[in-house]
Amino acid sequence: MSIDVSNITKTYGEQKALNDVSFKVSNPEIVGFLGPNGAGKSTMMKILTTYLNASDGSASVNGFDVVSKKKEVQQSVGYLPEHNPLYLDMYVREYLQFNANVYKVEKSRIEDIIELTGLTPEAHKKIGQLSKGYRQRVGLANALLHDPEVLILDEPTTGLDPNQLVDIRNLIKTIGKEKTVFLSTHIMQEVEAMCDRVIIINKGEIVADKTLSDLRQGQEQVVIVEFDYRVEDAFLLKLPKVKSVKNTQDFIYEITFSTDEDMRSHVFDFAHDNELKILQLNQKNASLESLFRDLTS
Rank of each mutant, 00 (worst) to 15 (best):
M1D: 09
S2W: 04
D4N: 15
S6E: 11
T9M: 05
K10V: 07
K10D: 00
Y12P: 01
E14C: 07
A17C: 05
A17K: 04
L18T: 04
N19G: 10
N19D: 15
S26F: 11
S26T: 11
N27H: 13
G32D: 00
F33K: 01
F33Y: 15
L34P: 04
P36G: 06
G38F: 13
A39E: 03
G40K: 05
K41A: 05
M45F: 04
K46L: 05
T49Q: 03
N53K: 04
N53S: 13
S55E: 04
D56T: 06
S60T: 14
S60W: 03
F64A: 01
F64R: 00
V66W: 01
K70P: 12
E72A: 09
Q74S: 13
Q74F: 12
Q74D: 08
Q75E: 12
Y79D: 01
P81M: 02
P81I: 05
H83V: 15
H83S: 11
N84Q: 09
R93K: 15
R93Y: 07
R93L: 13
Y95Q: 03
F98V: 10
F98P: 08
N99W: 08
A100M: 00
V102L: 12
K104E: 08
S108D: 11
I110G: 00
E111S: 13
E115G: 08
L116D: 01
L116M: 11
G118S: 06
P121M: 15
P121F: 09
G128Y: 05
Q129T: 00
Q129F: 11
L130G: 01
S131L: 06
G133L: 05
R135W: 11
Q136R: 04
Q136C: 12
R137Q: 12
R137N: 08
L144F: 06
L145R: 00
E149Q: 10
V150D: 02
P162Q: 06
R169K: 15
N170T: 06
K173P: 04
H186A: 11
E190G: 06
E190I: 12
V191T: 00
M194E: 02
V198S: 00
I201A: 01
K203N: 13
G204W: 06
V207C: 05
T211K: 08
D214W: 01
L215M: 07
R216H: 09
Q217H: 11
Q219W: 10
Q219S: 14
V223N: 01
V223G: 02
V225A: 01
D228G: 13
Y229V: 05
Y229P: 08
R230V: 10
V231A: 03
A234T: 15
K238S: 02
L239Y: 10
L239I: 07
P240L: 09
S244F: 05
S244C: 14
K246Q: 14
N247S: 12
T248R: 07
D250V: 13
F251M: 05
I252L: 12
I255P: 00
T259C: 10
E261Q: 15
M263N: 04
M263K: 04
S265I: 11
V267D: 00
F268W: 09
F270C: 03
D273I: 14
D273Y: 10
N274Q: 14
E275Y: 06
E275C: 10
L276P: 06
L276R: 06
L276A: 12
K277E: 09
I278H: 06
Q280M: 08
L281Q: 04
L281Y: 11
L281M: 05
Q283H: 07
N285P: 15
L288G: 03
L288M: 14
F292G: 10
R293H: 07
D294K: 14
D294M: 13
S297M: 04
